[in-house]
Simulated assay, not measured.
Amino acid sequence: MMVLFAPGMMPCSWKAVQQKTIWGTFLLLGGAMTMTTAMTQAGVAQWLADHIHSMVVGMNWWQTVLTMMVGTHIIRLGMLSNVAAVAMLAPVVFAMAPKLGLHPVAFTLLVCDTDTFAYLLPTQITAAVIAHSTETFSTADYAKVGSVAVLIAIAYGVCVMAPWYALLGMPVWNPAAAWPF
Score class of each variant (00 low, 15 high):
88 M>D: 09
171 P>G: 10
134 T>F: 10
96 M>R: 10
152 I>L: 15
111 V>W: 11
107 F>G: 03
161 M>N: 14
91 P>C: 14
90 A>D: 10
142 Y>P: 04
177 A>S: 08
96 M>G: 06
109 L>D: 12
150 V>R: 02
176 A>T: 09
133 S>A: 14
154 I>F: 04
92 V>D: 02
173 W>K: 00
162 A>Y: 02
168 L>N: 06
121 L>K: 04
122 P>T: 11
113 D>G: 07
151 L>T: 07
142 Y>R: 03
144 K>R: 14
113 D>V: 09
165 Y>K: 02
170 M>W: 09
128 A>C: 13
151 L>F: 13
89 L>C: 09
147 S>W: 12
146 G>Y: 07
168 L>V: 04
155 A>I: 07
156 Y>G: 10
99 K>E: 15
106 A>T: 10
97 A>D: 14
157 G>Y: 07
141 D>G: 03
117 F>K: 07
155 A>K: 00
99 K>Y: 05
100 L>P: 00
129 V>N: 15
130 I>L: 09
135 E>N: 14
101 G>C: 05
112 C>Q: 12
112 C>D: 15
160 V>I: 15
172 V>I: 09
172 V>D: 08
158 V>R: 02
143 A>L: 13
167 L>H: 02
135 E>P: 01
160 V>P: 06
109 L>T: 13
94 F>Y: 15
112 C>Y: 09
104 P>V: 12
172 V>W: 07
156 Y>S: 11
158 V>N: 00
128 A>Y: 01
154 I>R: 04
97 A>L: 11
163 P>I: 03
161 M>W: 13
91 P>F: 15
118 A>Q: 11
85 A>P: 03
92 V>T: 12
128 A>P: 04
156 Y>P: 00
165 Y>N: 01
150 V>Q: 00
168 L>A: 12
95 A>Y: 08
173 W>G: 01
97 A>E: 07
123 T>A: 14
93 V>K: 10
134 T>G: 05
176 A>V: 08
102 L>W: 05
173 W>T: 08
168 L>Q: 09
88 M>P: 03
124 Q>S: 12
174 N>L: 01
116 T>H: 02
101 G>I: 02
155 A>F: 10
